[in-house]
Structures are given as structure tokens and as C-alpha cells.
């Protein structure tokens, strides 16, 4: 009982100590200085394609009147959603809707969203919209989104968008190749097997394959990793651990145990995935890793 009280007391003082840092982080979010998060890891794959069941529902979701009636804090989000809704049928109107967004950063994001929405139907127009964004950061996000949108349609072209993704180019390659792997594993393998770019670009390509396939099936993902470049196979299995843990951590850990020399890399991925949600479990998972160097890297990551 006394121990629990001590923990709670520690949390109370901890919260008091860390609150200024959290407040500062919140201010950074408001100022648009937050950690840039690559857009939409699943791309548009989860949205109903135009002309398929469920797609028609989008047309009745929002209207200008809906957005005008919203409180100020939500109005920009509404305009942005409306722009995405309108874009497939009328990109010019969608851009006019974007112009109604008050926030300067959200206007740019809105343009990027419009480009992503139309990329499959009109890649040339999407490119024009992206190229016209003066902000380097948002121009990069725009091309990243376009790459994601086209991953299942044209693997080569989609990966090519990542070269224009500015600071997000390696995130882009990771996610686009992951999306490609879901529908055409040989094509994804071929992209990563080119071993293009520096060491970080090369290894994260394979990580994308492992992570995306593991979200669906860890055995399938492991088989894909077994066909990867030997140098980056461990990284690929880290992706398997992370992606599988998003879905079912216990089942993924059980699967990791069957992966021979890559079991620890797989467990490392699971542990890394738990870092924010359950740091205690993350540490325990790292400590279960047999290989000393992998265990050390795991613990270094989850405790920093």
C-alpha cells in the first residue's frame, strides 16, 4: 500500500516537473513545429475507390453550409475535409475550398490532400498542384501523398514521387514500397534490391516491406524478409515485429520465436512498438532478447 502511495506521489511530482515541457510541446504543435509525421501510412487503400460501394456516401457528408456553421476551431478541419470530398469530381473547386481555410499551414496541407485525392485519376494535375506549393515541407508532403496514392497502381511511378518528397523522401520510400508489397511483392522486392541511396535509405526500404506485410500476416512478412538482401534482413524482421505488434503483440512474439537467427530482431521491433504505450513491457521485452548487441540497442531506444 505504502509503495503504491510512493509511486503515486512520484507521479504527482513527476507530472508537476514535466508539465512545463508538455506545455511547451503543445505550443510547438500550435506553431506547426511538431515532429513532422509522414502522412497516412496506409495511403488511400482504406478509402472506398470512386464508383465502388461506400464511395457515394462521401458526396453527402459535408457542404459549405456545414463548415460555415462550425465553431472556429473545427471550421478549418471541415474545409479541408470538404476539399478532399470535392477533389475527385472538381479539383479546381477543391482548391477554392482550400482557400477558405484560415490557418496558413492547413491551407498547404489542404492542397497536398487535394493532389493525393486526384493522383490516381489525374497524376499530371496532381504533380502540378504539388509543384505549385511554395513551402518545401508541404511540397514534399504533397509528393509523398501522391506516391502513396499510386503505389498500388504504378509502382515505378509511385517510388519516383519519393525523389520529390524533400525531407520525407526516405519515409516516402518506406511507406510506398510497403503499399506496393501488399499487392505486388516481387515489384516491392525489385525496388529495394536496387539498393539505391545511402545506407539509411537502403535499409528502411526493406523495413517497409516487413512492417506492411506483418500488419496483415507475420508469416507472409517473414517469408518476404527471408528473400531480402542479407545485410538488411534483421532490419526487415524489426519491421515484422513492429507491424505485427500493431495488430497482435502476443501472437507476433510467438511467431518471432520461430524465426531462428532473426527472432531477436523481430522481438526488438515488438519492443520498440511498445515504447510509448507500455514502456515497462518494452523494457521487459528488450531484456528477453538473447543477442547482447541487439538487446543493448533495444534498451537504449526504449529508455531514451
Amino acid at each position: 500500500m505504502l509503495l503504491w502511495l510512493a509511486v503515486l506521489l512520484g507521479m504527482r511530482f513527476g507530472a508537476e516537473h514535466w508539465l512545463p515541457a508538455l506545455a511547451a510541446a503543445a505550443e510547438q504543435l500550435d506553431a506547426g513545429e511538431s515532429m513532422p509525421v509522414p502522412p497516412k501510412p496506409t495511403g488511400l487503400a482504406s478509402l472506398p475507390a470512386p464508383g465502388t460501394p461506400g464511395d457515394g456516401q462521401r458526396a453527402t457528408l459535408l457542404s459549405p453550409a456545414t463548415c460555415e456553421a462550425m465553431v472556429a476551431d473545427l471550421r478549418d478541419v471541415c474545409w479541408q475535409s470538404l476539399a478532399r470530398q470535392v477533389a475527385p469530381a472538381d479539383p479546381d473547386e477543391a482548391l477554392r475550398v482550400c482557400a477558405r481555410v484560415a490557418g496558413s499551414e492547413m491551407v498547404l496541407e489542404c492542397h497536398a490532400d487535394v493532389a493525393e485525392s486526384i493522383a490516381v485519376a489525374d497524376r499530371a494535375r496532381a504533380e502540378t498542384i504539388c509543384a505549385a506549393i511554395e513551402s518545401r515541407k508541404w511540397r514534399g508532403q504533397c509528393f509523398f501523398g501522391s506516391g502513396l496514392a499510386l503505389a498500388e497502381t504504378d509502382a515505378e511511378y509511385a517510388m519516383g514521387r519519393c525523389a520529390h518528397a524533400e525531407v520525407y523522401q526516405t519515409f516516402c520510400r518506406h511507406d510506398v514500397v510497403g503499399e506496393i508489397a501488399l499487392v505486388d511483392l516481387p515489384a516491392a522486392h525489385a525496388q529495394c534490391a536496387r539498393e539505391e541511396g545511402d545506407w539509411l535509405t537502403r535499409k528502411t526500404c526493406w523495413h517497409g516491406i516487413g512492417k506492411y506485410l506483418a500488419r496483415r500476416d507475420t508469416s507472409e512478412a517473414a517469408a518476404a524478409c527471408d528473400a531480402s538482401t542479407a545485410e538488411w534482413r534483421g532490419t526487415c524482421y524489426h519491421g515484422v515485429g513492429w507491424g505485427g505488434a500493431e495488430r497482435d503483440a502476443d501472437a507476433t512474439l510467438a511467431d518471432c520465436s520461430t524465426r531462428g537467427p532473426y527472432a531477436d530482431h523481430c522481438r526488438h521491433g515488438v519492443a520498440a512498438q511498445f515504447k510509448r504505450a507500455d514502456p515497462t513491457r518494452a523494457v521487459a521485452l528488450c531484456e528477453s532478447i538473447q543477442k547482447a548487441d541487439t538487446r543493448a540497442r533495444c534498451l537504449d531506444f526504449v529508455t531514451r
Binding site: V7, F13, G14, W18
Partner: peptide
């Protein structure tokens, strides 16, 4: 235990 509680809120 207090340190653990403090660490958990970081």
C-alpha cells in the same frame, strides 16, 4: 517507487 512514478510521467 517514487522515482518509478516520476519516470512514468516523463
Amino acid at each position: 517507487a517514487s522515482a518509478a512514478g516520476w519516470w512514468l510521467t516523463r
